[in-house]
């Protein structure tokens, strides 16, 4: 007679709001399957109320995070990369399940994700030098333009690329001091919650990144029309939904990012995803004695 094999302890996948891991207040969940159709987990199906709670948490975190030094934000993003590297095996396993890719390919994606974070981390105290300017006005005035974060950004993460795509939309938003509410890939949400566990242990203040899992078609319209959201990234919205979200976003003049066509997440990013969520502030002061 052989010894009974040990039953594994499964993880409960919850939301990530304000640094905590609550279930959806609605009590709803949905079944997440592997690319082969096997049951993987029940993920929380976030509601309108969860989305609103997440916006509140993001707003609350904004003054502290945008007021932190750029050096500090850079270090924290680098810390996220360190934590991610440490959990590499777990992400590889989840990517194999979610995307049906080989372990080798999943490893490449995990590595690219870590490298992407490191790349963005370095921008925290450099983007200002690229985007700002001392303006030579025609008069005795000191005139300086600096960039500042837009505020609370709602991000609909790409449906494809549940890890590399996800980090490629979150990192550029937060590195400059924005806070965000992210709707994870509906089909493959599990890596996002594992990422939340990484964020929660990386000195990233609670509320800077809030992660919702659930139906994009249900959550994106609430976030796009929310009057305390300053910008939306509609990358993960199907076209028809994106157009209606863009219309909703007009109500309080949200900045809207809607990249044309499919993004190649492997490719080297440009500055666009950072600059879209930056405001330019220009300060004038007379020069005199």
């Amino acid at each position: 007679m052989t010894e009974p094999s040990r039953l594994t302890v499964r993880k409960t996948y919850k939301l990530y709001i304000g640094g905590a891991f609550p279930r959806s207040e609605s009590g709803r969940s949905y079944v997440v399957t592997s690319s082969k159709g096997d049951f993987l987990a029940n993920a929380s199906r976030a509601s309108r109320k969860d989305a609103r709670d997440a916006v509140t948490a993001a707003r609350k975190a904004f003054p502290g995070w945008s007021g932190a030094t750029a050096y500090n934000r850079g270090q924290i993003l680098y810390r996220v990369a360190e934590m991610l590297e440490g959990r590499r095996a777990q992400f590889v396993a989840e990517l194999v399940d979610a995307d049906g890719v080989s372990a080798r390919r999943a490893g490449e994606l995990a590595d690219a994700t870590v490298d992407r974070l490191v790349w963005y981390a370095g921008w925290s105290d450099k983007i200002g030098a690229i985007q700002g300017a001392a303006n030579p006005v025609a008069g005795p005035y000191f005139n300086l333009s600096t960039s500042e974060p837009t505020g609370v950004v709602a991000v609909v993460a790409p449906q494809e690329g549940p890890l590399l795509g996800l980090i490629s939309v979150i990192a550029p938003v937060i590195v400059t001091g924005n806070t965000c509410v992210v709707v994870a890939s509906e089909r493959a949400p599990l890596p996002s919650i594992t990422l939340a566990e990484v964020l929660a242990t990386s000195d990233l203040p609670g509320g800077v990144v809030n992660l919702l899992t659930g139906k994009v078609a249900e959550l994106a319209p609430w976030l796009s029309s929310h009057m305390d959201v300053n910008a939306v990234d509609l990358t993960g919205c199907p076209d028809e939904l994106a157009v209606s979200c863009e219309q909703d976003a007009a109500e309080n003049l949200k900045r809207v990012l809607r990249p044309p066509g499919k993004t190649d997440w492997q490719a080297q990013p440009t500055l666009d995803r950072m600059t879209k969520f930056l405001e330019t502030k220009t300060i004038w002061h007379p020069i005199g004695i």
Binding site: P136, V137, A138, Y141, K281, T282, I283, W284
Partner: peptide, 16 residues
């Protein structure tokens, strides 16, 4: 977007 300190309503083509 624009903060005028000890002045107000100044404009210049070089200044965003």
């Amino acid at each position: 977007g624009v903060v005028w300190a000890n002045t107000f309503n100044r404009f210049d083509p070089t200044s965003p």
